[in-house]
């Protein structure tokens, strides 16, 4: 089998205080089902070591995380080589319940955005309010960046992880780079 490669193949860029980096291979699983179910909660805990997050929240991070995507959908983040077995474990644990667990790792790209005004780099591209008071650490937002769908979460005060579809990874990276190069706005 050919070796798995991330869409951006380790691409990096920096502009001023901002660094952009391909987060490499990240295991991502879409899990849909009844988020209130005890079985699902236990299965998620076992799969990524995190509790089912509150609305709009990301629990954990790249090393093991669970993000709230919609009232019946979670994004589970794990190591890329663990994704397939995690899906199998989830499917086995939730066999008796109406659910769906799919490995979407290779359908998506993850970009790490770091720097003092990282929030402004995103705010220029998305119709989301990134004011630090309204968008605290651990918040996850599904929205659009420029012309494509994307999601991002805030891992710490000046770091964001951006998720987008693999096919538009170059576009999103270029977009973020252009926004970073234009410099800070000084709003936040």
């Amino acid at each position: 089998m050919p070796e798995a490669t991330s869409a951006l193949n380790g691409r990096e860029a920096s502009a001023g205080a901002i660094t952009l980096r391909d987060a490499g291979l990240v295991g991502m699983i879409t899990l849909r089902g009844n988020l209130a179910s005890a079985k699902l909660k236990a299965a998620v805990k076992k799969a990524v070591g995190q509790a089912v997050p509150e609305v709009r929240r990301m629990a954990g991070g790249l090393e093991g995380g669970a993000g709230w995507m919609s009232p019946d959908e979670l994004l589970l983040v794990t190591a890329h080589d663990k994704a397939a077995e995690t899906v199998a474990a989830l499917s086995a644990a939730l066999k008796a319940e109406h659910h769906m667990a799919v490995n979407v790792s290779d359908a998506r790209a993850v970009i790490t955005l770091r720097g003092g005004h990282a929030a402004e780099v995103l705010a220029k591209l998305a119709p989301a309010d990134l004011d630090p008071d309204l968008f605290p650490v651990g918040e996850l937002r599904r929205t659009r960046l420029g012309q494509v769908a994307a999601a991002f979460w805030k891992s710490d005060e000046d770091t964001f992880h951006v998720i987008c579809f693999r096919s538009v990874a170059d576009y999103v990276f270029d977009l973020l780079e252009a926004s970073a190069k234009a410099g800070p706005v000084g709003v936040f």
């Binding site: 709009r56 919609s70 009232p71 119709p127 309010d129 929205t143």
Partner: peptide, 11 residues
């Protein structure tokens, strides 16, 4: 009403 997000028309 599900996310509690103030969603812009373009979203």
């Amino acid at each position: 009403p599900y996310c509690g997000v103030q969603a812009d028309e373009t979203e």
